[in-house]
Amino acid sequence: MSTDYRLIDSTLRDGSHAISHQYNADEVVAIVRGLDRAGVQVIEIAHGDGLGGSSFNYGFSKVDEKELIDRACASTTTAKIAVLLLPGIGLADDLRDVKELGVSMARIATHCTEGDISEQHIKTAKKLGLETIGFLMMAHMNSPEGLVEQALLMQSYGADVIYIADSAGAMTTEDVRRRVNALVEALDVPVGVHAHNNLSMAVANSIAAYEEGAKNLDGTSAGLGAGAGNCPTEILAAVSDKYGISTGVDVLALMDVAEEIIRPLMPRQQVIDRAGLILGYAGVYGSFLLHSQRAAERYNVSQAEILLELGRRQVVGGQEDMIIDVALELARKHSEAQA
């Protein structure tokens, strides 16, 4: 059936951040079955930081992601199974492995100014016959023109779709419109948007992206994800219905997945508390949320101060180690002030 946009669900990838990468196989099977039954076209699964993300820096996965991907591939009927890979963290070899497991889409993600590090991986994914998406993260940190330049690189490597990700949930609707509009004008391939909810804009920004011509939209069930969470798919689908935008998904079935499978496994509700809001306000990578909370507790410093300092340093996704660096420096400053 033809739809106005394609919904890509990232509950099993971006959602993994919110549960510190602790998915087990039974949860994966239940989520894939529920989303597949609801008519979701694509289900993304990997460590939150993409293939190979299991580490001290980003948190170790409870269950090997390849085992979970294997189970996901075995549990879907119509939904495509996708993975995410960040060059510098995951390897082209990982794409070969997951292709064997039955994955049919790869999203290759780089910081929004570093598209040229994706060449090796986009070409590998294409050669493997995977639908390949170039994914430009932290898109608020680059201008519409700058994003076009990066997107054209990824398109030239063979990407079938180009996404921009508001990884810090920092964009206003106007920011999204200008960027999507520029990309749709400049590219030969379809455009997608991945929104976060730190400023409570995720659904509105996704609809705006659609209005500007985006043909792919991301979300997660119940908004489970990094920072204050992703664009909640059940809400996006409901709002799309009200606008008369065809999604091909069963809104009530998506609500059931969110309510009956996802909410019971959430360690905390996906709300916009102070730390979440600061991420969006200061433009800090969403997955720093829980890591900065742990560092704040460990070194007895303010999480808000850590996040603001990371924003000042223009830290990008992947630099979770800098959270410890900032926490140690804040702790030292405090003890010097008391001395």
Partner: peptide, 30 residues
Amino acid sequence: IDEFTKTTSTALREIGGAEQSKAIIVLNPA
């Protein structure tokens, strides 16, 4: 970039003496 992470990771084991290892590289445009 894959050669960077693979070669670095191997060095952490072969020369550093770790039994298992991982290497990550990030580019920052600040």
